[in-house]
Design a protein around this nucleic acid. Sequence first.
RNA 1: GGGCCUAUAGCUCAGUUGGUUAGAGCGCACCCCUGAUAAGGGUGAGGUGAUUGGUUCGACUCCAAUUAGGCCCA
Length: 952
Amino acid sequence: MEKDYKDTLNLPKTEFPMKANLVQKELEILDFWKTHNTYQKMQEKDKSNAYILHDGPPYANGHIHIGHALNKILKDIIIKYKSMKGFYSPYIPGWDCHGLPIEHEVDKKLGSKKGEVSILAKRTLCKEYALKFLDIQREEFKRLGVFGDWQEPYLTMSFQYEASIVREFGKFVEKGYVYKGKKPVHWCPSCVTALAEAEVEYADKESPSIYVKFKVKNTSKFKNTPLTSPLDKGGLRGVSEIYFVIWTTTPWTLPANMALSLHPRFMYRLVKTPDGELILAQDLIKNCMEKIGYKEGDYIITESVWTGSELEGIVCRHPWIDRNVETIVGEHVTLEQGTGVVHTAPGHGEEDYEMGLKYGIDIYAPVDDKGCFTEDVKDFAGQNVFKANQEIIEKLKNINALLGSAEKITHSYPHCWRCKKPVIFRATEQWFISMEKNNLRQNALDEIKKTRWIPAWGLDRIKGMVENRPDWCISRQRAWGVPITLFQCKKCKQIITDKAVIDNVVKEVEKAGADVWFEKSVKELLPEGYKCSKCNSSEFSKETDILDVWFDSGVSHAAVLEADKRLSWPADLYLEGSDQHRGWFQSSLLASAGTRGKAPYRAVLTHGFVVDGQGKKMSKSIGNVISPQEVTNKHGSEILRLWCASADYREDMRISKEILDRLVEAYRKIRNTCRFLLGNTYGFEVKSFETSASSVEPLKVKGDLLEIDRLALSMLQHLIEKVNRAYENFEFHEVFHSIYNFCVTNMSAFYLDVLKDRLYTFKAGSKERQAAQWVLYNILLALTKMMAPVLSFTAEEIWSFIPKNKEESIFLTSFPEVQPEFIDKELEKKWENLSSIRDEVNKALEIKRQQKFIGNSLEAKVILYVDEENYKILEGYRTFLPTLFIVSAAEVVKDPNHPEDSYKSPLISGMAVLIDKAQGNKCSRCWNWGITVGKYKDFPGLCARCHEVLTS
RNA sequence: GGGCCUAUAGCUCAGUUGGUUAGAGCGCACCCCUGAUAAGGGUGAGGUGAUUGGUUCGACUCCAAUUAGGCCCA
């Protein structure tokens, strides 16, 4: 039996497990970070060199979903990278605590008791609810390996934060932005309350469908127009009655009709009918005439045609009210239904309202909070609007304003989520922040231009929104939020804008939270003896509405960036999903631009949404939801982190079982590469190493390196460069792909494979082997550090296996920088050729392997038949070729006439590869074949090289 | 319906200012190894560049429309 020489080899040796067992191991590492205060230690830096990423607060409701995980992990990657780059880069997570969803949950729990509970008691329940989920989410975020000051987050419901909200609101009041106006909201007449969009459910409802004509007051405009078609000899000149025709399903909104909307580019035509000359969109004529009940021949379509724009500003008369109604134009008009002429009641519709604002029309809504007409509406005062529908139709019929007869249609209509009854849209008094005051809109637009948007199209998106948005409606008729802290004089209705009054409230809120507004009386909240500056009255009322929660989070720049000593203003980066262009990015911008004239951020980065493997959005009903908890429990958070870095977040990110499986494999490959590096740096003297790696004796080490070692180092520098650039540009998928490719291609399949012979069979302390280890050590350090921001758990684990005498955590080390002295362009160029020759040899070997001529490549001898040019390339490497090809022998023959059985390279002209069996016998130690095997009596199974190693 | 965005192999990504037969890794198939071993190596097969039109000597790259999808509005 042949002696086993395995013990004489330097095989890899490491305790670092191949199997990650992430689900368990991550918990240990989290514990390590906790007990060693790793995050805190990372903050012990020069604060003047800071990189501030300001956290956008998630809503403290429910468990985190995959989108939350993506967002927090991306932030974490940046924070860790910047920190390792030497920046003071703290992360203060925050939570958005006020708002409707929490209030709803509390209402739900209260059930029938809802009405009996005081506002303060309810607010307490809301607070408890928010705290509960804050804790849950905090644990879930920490479990993902996200670093941050989790012990001291910011909460929009903390006293300090609430005081900031009141203070910032006060600034808006002082500067004159805040005004009271009317805006239509969903209103439930049965519950007598305003409803938020989320409280509205859509259900089918039967409504009347009617066509109504509006008489043109002055037809002179038309008299100058050639109205008559050749077929219509009578012409229009004798006609004095011209009407616009509208269609509506809410006759009750007609008393509030203030305008008729046309589309600026649609074509409108005049139609002669027994009921007069009607104007409507030409594409809808046929349909309307049918619906109204005319038969063909009953009406004549004239040649007269205009665009909506041409018809703008025509004065009409309301069917029965003494009111002029003008035609206006808007893009919201469609040709899907109706007449192309839209009845517009700014007090009863969202688009109508927008049009009203645009044209300066009164936002008129003569309907009270129980859904009944007010005294304003003479004929129908006191009537419920839905019940009044029929009477209004009768009225229209009587005054001959109704075309055809009323029909019934069933359509989707908003209903109250609580009482399930149909709701109405009704203008109510609301508080607004003016976009025009102090040039807020323009100022915000200027700041948008100064901000770096990543990706760049973010600028266009938010710009368009800010350009077109209406004034900011900041009031909500709710309980769970920060009150609009305004007083009104009961006598003269003056709103108090005194700074002293506001400051006083801020102080109160600082002490006791926003609850104080509801707890204390007006007198207690006002400075003592305060009197109205206008009428000297001392009787005031306090506002009961609360602020829009977007105002809450919008002022985080003041409440957190400015106020928190750990941070500074403005932030270097805001990073959220692309939905926040309308949300937080905008509210923050307006809140900051309105009070400080500047954006609160230097750069804004957005990521896409998480979708399923088909690119469809995740939804419970489809059942394609993947939760972060699921991934963590099955594969480990590390895989989720890797997923965040693997895909391009600027687009929507897909996640599926297959994608995760691929990532698990990629993870294993990276892990195993590091494990091999660890195993082969075993026994290496780190200290002497580091000395010689420093400037003390660099040349000596460099001189010991083989060419392939220097090549590997050069390749490493390129990787370092690429990875640095990718992190700087926030292109983490580039980080992942380059590191991964480096592990697979440059290391595993090339350098490490070639190196095995030297590492295993050379003497442990030989300078060749030491040189290789030195390179491996450097690669390992660089790789581990570079992956740390993404694969934080694994990097920390690897770090703990790297011979010590250094930082306690990988996150306390500094990020690898390119060392230009190790870049060797010339060498790379030479090796490009060698590398492609190696590829061709592999092809030749494969053919022989498939033919069962050889198995292991060491059984082969390679003979290269080359031309002059290739000979020059190979000449200097003759002795190294067997190592490079991982075969037992290699010859280079300068002869363009290749033998028959050889593989003629299609890629490299002038080269053929002949594979022969290696001569001699297989060395039992190094497995290379050679004629020296058997020569030595003391070790008959060894080749000369191994004999030398064992006997010297 | 509107604004913004996306569409390259089964998967994740590259593709320089429009210029030869569109690249990588994974996965897959086949083979080798059994001294990185629930590892490692090799070879190979996979693409009508969403579709349709246009600009151009020439388009994955520029433009338009369509389709599918995403976010935000309506």
